[in-house]
């Protein structure tokens, strides 16, 4: 078996590849459904209905897609520069911490200033959480994958400490949760009778902005250059360390945004279960989109659909909702292979 680079890659293939991959993932996962003894068609129909089948389902899916969109962008930007930021989960909580610190009465501004302010401090906190990994990578060549992963655990324990200690809301009846965000800082609902909030719009605007920066600006050019060929980038006079720092601040900032949308938009206060692994799921979102910022919008929606749909499927038919995680993981691996196949063809001799 030999891999042979393709001379031309048709744009159709690039769009078609992830779709094919997801079909393959669905087929593989149906093997598991078969094992549970339920009907495959019924199960997938229940999933589809639970994700998009009603107004309620649709708004729930969009609500779930909001943080995934932002953490997906965080991963997409970083991975483009081959900066492997696996710490979006921790950065999300840093954003949430900042929003809680400033948003629970420390500062009161009118809403049109308060909300942007919360997003700003959230992004700043998320970016700061990456300073140590960036420093260690640039100065000591310590692998950022391991440092960002390990920091997730540290940050989560720190949040745990704050919520059980100094930040615990005395009105919370003993639950480990912080005081609620003041009314001026709460993101307005954008649709009646739903949990859908301003965060979704922030997410979509971020995606377009990231796409614009990556595609049309010098920064974006430098980021892509460092990712594609670091030695050529150095040769062209691009500072790798500076570019990586920039990427890290953008990536951490986007993950921090996700923390703000969840605290100020969805929950209204900081809890320990603010994120059921949105940071890690963001990696899958980015991979499914082949790291394209606009593709992230689609893949965040897809993943949110799977998670929300699987929850309602597991209630309708007797299948544990962990099937969603299996489906997502297989999709990620399948997309990796399919994208490689757009660049290489396999030759058997």
């Amino acid at each position: 078996m030999r891999l042979e680079p393709r001379e031309t890659v048709s744009p159709w293939m690039v769009i078609f590849a992830p779709v094919m991959a997801i079909v393959v993932a669905l087929v593989i996962t149906s093997g598991l459904i078969l094992w549970t003894g339920e009907s495959i068609i019924e199960a997938y129909l229940a999933l589809l209905k639970g994700a998009f089948g009603s107004r309620f389902a649709l708004t729930e899916t969009l609500t779930r897609a909001t943080p995934l969109l932002l953490t997906g962008l965080a991963a997409a930007v970083a991975f483009r520069a081959r900066f492997w930021n696996i710490g979006a989960e921790g950065q999300l909580y840093c954003g949430a911490l900042a929003a809680t610190y400033f948003g629970t009465g420390l500062i009161t501004l009118p809403p049109f200033m308060m909300i942007p302010f919360l997003f700003m401090v959230g992004a700043l906190a998320g970016g700061l959480a990456l300073l140590l990994p960036v420093y260690l990578k640039s100065k000591l060549k310590v692998d950022e994958v391991v440092t960002t992963l390990l920091l997730n655990f540290v940050i989560l324990l720190f949040v745990n400490y704050l919520l059980e200690g100094p930040w615990r809301d005395p009105m919370s009846m003993g639950w480990p949760q912080a005081a609620p965000i003041i009314d001026e800082g709460v993101l307005p609902r954008i649709m009646e009778k739903s949990r859908l909030h301003l965060g979704l719009i922030v997410g979509v605007i971020s995606a377009v902005a990231v796409w614009f920066v990556m595609r049309f600006t010098i920064w974006g050019y430098e980021i892509r250059a460092v990712g594609n060929n670091p030695s050529a980038a150095t040769f062209a006079g691009i500072s790798i360390n500076k570019t990586v720092l920039r990427v890290a601040l953008i990536s951490g900032g986007l993950a921090g945004f996700a923390g703000v949308t969840e605290v100020a938009g969805l929950k209204g206060y900081l809890t320990l279960d603010l994120s059921p692994g949105f940071g890690y799921a963001g990696i899958a979102v980015a991979m499914l989109a082949n790291l394209h910022p606009l593709g992230v919008i689609m893949s965040a929606l897809f993943l949110a659909g799977i998670y929300v749909g699987a929850d309602s499927m597991s209630r309708a038919v007797n299948i544990p909702n962990y099937i969603a995680d299996v489906l997502v993981a297989i999709s990620v691996l399948a997309v990796l292979v399919s994208i490689m196949l757009t660049q290489f063809r396999i030759r058997f001799r």
């Binding site: 891999l3 492997w84 696996i86 994958v145 995680d325 993981a329 990620v332 691996l333 490689m340």
Partner: peptide, 23 residues
Amino acid sequence: HLGLSQHVTGIGITMLASALSFF
């Protein structure tokens, strides 16, 4: 054999193996 990114594949394997175990 396919020469894919070791970082991303590894994360994918972690996701798959834990999800399958829990399921």
